[in-house]
Each structure stands twice: as structure tokens, then as C-alpha cells.
Amino acid sequence: MTHVKRFQSIPMSKSMRGLCKEEDYAFLGVSGSSTRGSPEDQGALEENWKDTKEARARRRLEGEQQEKERLRAIEDSKKEREQQWRRHIAEVTSSQEKTLQDRRTRLHSFREFQRKVLAEEGGAEGAAVHLLVTRM
């Protein structure tokens, strides 16, 4: 492990040093076991390495799946909010249309009432009333 002393002066984060050590030991264990050690040790190291690799792949897939679920949930909530907004706009529009219709009806009945009152007030003023009513 002379390389450890030689490369110790290189600034590295603790996690990076840990990864490098892990890779060094895995490499040295696999390549060194062919000349030293028993075949059982080599098989155990390879199996441990494979298990670690499979665990990493499994965690990566789980993370990707969780991310997809999170994005799907966000998309669903966006769709739901959009539908609620559309319903709200439809309700507001409907109430405004009803209010306008009611106003129109009340105004129409008021004008009819005005015409009737003006017609009853005077026959001589009928021409002026007729002119006034037609302007309205």
C-alpha cells in the first residue's frame, strides 16, 4: 500500500477516499488472490462484489421508480387543479350570465311600466311621450 502514502497529499473528500479504498481492495483482492490465497476467498470476494453491485443497481432502480411516482403525482395534482379552475370559471361565467339575464328582465319590465305610466298621464302629450319612449 505504498500508493496510499504517495497519493495522500492529493486533496480528496472522505467519501471519495472511501470509494478509492474500496475499489483498491476489490482490485487487489481479485487480482492478488490468483497468486495468493485460497479459491474460496476469491469466490467470496467476487460474490461480495457482485452483491454490492446488485444492491447499488437495485437502489438506483428504486430511486428512479420513486422519482417517476413523484413526477406522476405532481402531474396528477396539476391536472386536478386545472379541472378545478375550469369548473370555477364555468360557475362564475354561469352566475354572471344569470345576473345579466335578470337585470335585462328587470330593465325590460321597468321600461314597460314607464311606457304604461306615460301613456296614462296624458293624451296631449302622447306625441312627446311616444318620441321619448322610442328613444329609450
Rank of each mutant, 00 (worst) to 15 (best):
62 E>T: 04
13 S>L: 10
91 E>P: 00
22 E>K: 07
117 V>I: 02
17 R>D: 04
134 T>W: 00
122 G>V: 04
46 E>I: 05
39 P>H: 09
70 R>L: 05
60 R>P: 09
112 E>R: 01
55 A>T: 10
126 G>L: 01
104 R>E: 12
129 V>S: 08
17 R>Q: 15
134 T>H: 04
84 Q>I: 03
103 R>G: 07
3 H>P: 14
121 E>F: 14
61 L>E: 13
73 A>E: 10
59 R>M: 03
59 R>K: 06
76 D>T: 03
66 Q>A: 12
50 K>A: 07
14 K>V: 14
27 F>S: 12
106 R>I: 12
110 F>Y: 14
22 E>I: 12
53 K>W: 02
113 F>Y: 14
46 E>A: 09
103 R>W: 05
82 E>P: 08
108 H>S: 15
25 Y>V: 05
106 R>Y: 08
37 G>A: 00
102 D>F: 06
93 T>I: 00
99 T>V: 11
29 G>F: 00
23 E>W: 10
22 E>D: 13
108 H>D: 15
103 R>S: 12
58 R>T: 11
56 R>F: 04
100 L>Y: 10
17 R>W: 04
24 D>F: 03
5 K>Y: 02
84 Q>W: 01
62 E>V: 01
45 L>Y: 01
4 V>Q: 13
77 S>G: 06
90 A>H: 00
71 L>W: 01
107 L>E: 03
39 P>M: 04
51 D>Y: 05
131 L>I: 05
21 K>S: 11
4 V>C: 15
89 I>C: 02
87 R>N: 11
2 T>W: 13
45 L>I: 02
71 L>E: 07
34 S>D: 06
118 L>G: 01
77 S>L: 07
67 E>L: 07
93 T>S: 04
86 R>L: 04
58 R>Y: 02
36 R>N: 06
51 D>A: 07
32 G>Y: 00
23 E>M: 11
126 G>Y: 03
106 R>Q: 14
5 K>A: 07
27 F>I: 09
48 N>H: 11
47 E>K: 08
124 A>M: 14
122 G>D: 03
8 Q>I: 15
97 E>H: 10
32 G>F: 00
6 R>M: 14
88 H>L: 03
129 V>H: 06
136 M>L: 13
105 T>E: 06
119 A>Y: 08
44 A>K: 02
72 R>H: 09
15 S>E: 15
90 A>M: 05
57 A>R: 02
110 F>M: 08
